[in-house]
């Protein structure tokens, strides 16, 4: 009995142990690491990937995955930028970009649900399409020159806290509420656990899955807009490759790739673990190439751990 409890404890809180360990390690390894300034810095750095991970969580919980998020980030930035330059009010431009993202989510859900295609392949295809669109729309040239007001989203502060961090934290709180207290959230967990059983209880699977994919794209679009505002330039390649950081964070945080398992609080910790790793290594003057290696190793370790703890469930 005692053994089982210990296992449960590790299963539940492993990621927090890792996080604390990391912080202690880097605090000793570098004199500049352990400071409020650097803490806010880390949080601001993760805000983009952190926001995207909220959306990704919904999709992975249903048993799916969305690789197109990197493309959504770029495409949304480009579209929003072009609209603003064409004279649209920033609010209109933002809303239009979010709508575009919703359509992307709809397409992802449509192909993976209606034709029973593997969502990994479907979203890999949409990722390609979105990448292409970003370059076509911009002609591969960065777009810039927005109004000053637009900068607030990515560069503004409320008190000492950067706005991106606030957006991120609000989204985590909302996601926590939705996943824990609403019927949508509970059905999402059910669908990931056993889709057929949930279908036979009369829950509209189609609606829930479409909602999850659309939420994922729209939340990713929010990240895209924050990014656009922060760098104040729409790069057609912005956000490329982020899908891997996002998935790594979610999986590290205990979201099972087979669906139905994991908590949003864990995801936040998972994203943080990756960010602290990267930030700490930077502080210790480890080159970016070695950081990639380290991230890959951490990801492998995380998914292996997930499989071992949860048994051989595929």
């Amino acid at each position: 009995m005692k053994k089982v409890n210990l296992k449960n404890l590790f299963q539940k809180y492993a990621i927090y142990f890792v996080l604390v360990f990391e912080i202690i390690f880097f605090a000793f390894a570098s004199d500049v690491f352990f400071s409020l300034k650097n803490a806010l810095n880390v949080l601001r750095q993760i805000s983009i990937v952190g926001i995207m991970a909220v959306g990704m969580t919904f999709v992975i919980l249903t048993g799916g995955v969305d690789l197109s998020v990197g493309g959504v980030t770029a495409c949304v930035g480009v579209i929003c930028a072009k609209l603003m330059l064409a004279g649209a009010h920033p609010v209109i431009a933002i809303l239009a970009s979010l709508c575009f993202a919703a359509v992307v989510g709809l397409v992802n859900a449509f192909f993976s649900h209606e034709f029973k295609l593997n969502p990994m392949i479907v979203t890999l295809a949409t990722l390609q399409i979105l990448k292409g669109i970003s370059y076509i729309v911009t002609g591969a040239i960065p777009v810039y020159g927005f109004t000053e007001k637009f900068k607030v989203i990515g560069q503004g502060h409320i008190g000492p806290i950067p706005i991106p961090i606030i957006i991120m934290i609000v989204l985590y709180i909302l996601a926590y509420i939705v996943l824990t207290y609403t019927s949508f959230g509970q059905s999402i967990y059910g669908i990931g656990g056993n889709e057929e059983a949930v279908r036979l209880t009369g829950i509209n699977i189609r609606k829930q899955k479409y909602t999850a994919y659309m939420l994922c794209s729209v939340i990713t679009a929010i990240a895209g807009i924050v990014l656009l505002s922060r760098v104040n330039t729409a790069q057609p390649s912005a956000g490329f490759g982020y899908e891997m950081d996002v998935i790594t964070g979610a999986v590290l945080g205990g979201i099972s790739m087979s669906g139905g398992e994991g908590k949003i609080t864990g995801v936040f910790a998972g994203v943080l673990v990756m960010a602290v790793l990267s930030n700490g290594m930077m502080m210790c003057n480890v080159t970016e190439y070695w950081q990639w290696v380290a991230k890959g190793v951490v990801m492998l370790a995380a998914i292996t751990y997930d499989r071992i703890i949860k048994g051989g469930k595929v």
């Binding site: 967990y189 656990g193 056993n194 057929e196 059983a197 139905g260």
Partner: peptide, 12 residues
């Protein structure tokens, strides 16, 4: 396969 979500609680 069809009646239960095995890795979820009785409650859910």
């Amino acid at each position: 396969a069809h009646g239960l979500i095995l890795n979820k609680s009785i409650f859910l």
